[in-house]
Amino acid sequence: MLERIVQWARRKSPWVLHYNTGGCNGCDIEILDLLTPRYDVERLGILKEASPRHADVLLCTGPVTRQSRDRLRRIYEQIPAPKWVVAVGSCSCSGGVFHDGYDVLGGVDQVLPVDIYVPGCPCRPEAIIEGLVQLLGRIE
């Protein structure tokens, strides 16, 4: 019973932390669109947080560079369990147009376990919402 209440609370309030691992900021702007009244992602209980210690979900944009690899890993470690990772945008999914770069490792899954991939360059806000809703289903 208690576990069901906790699961219900997690499903109703997945707070997200946004981190750009080295992209072009296109997907970041689309993520900010989610907070506008047009998309209003907070109606799903999804709140953008400023600290990993308050977050449940790590929203990653951009390809993982060698410089951001350790930072990304540390941020992931600082999120309390249980935690999920969503790769937003083609670069975050596979490296995108930067995949052959000398300082690019590839997608986020090269460093962290990714739960949901949202492709697109940049991905539409509707696609990000769809990915987050799928993640909510996975949390259940």
Partner: peptide
């Protein structure tokens, strides 16, 4: 009792500074 069991990591208890 309600919280999920966490894992210990080297950077877990460091101050948050965007991973730096």
């Amino acid at each position: 009792a309600l919280a999920a069991p966490g894992e210990e990591h080297p950077g877990k208890h460091l101050p948050y500074a965007c991973g730096e």
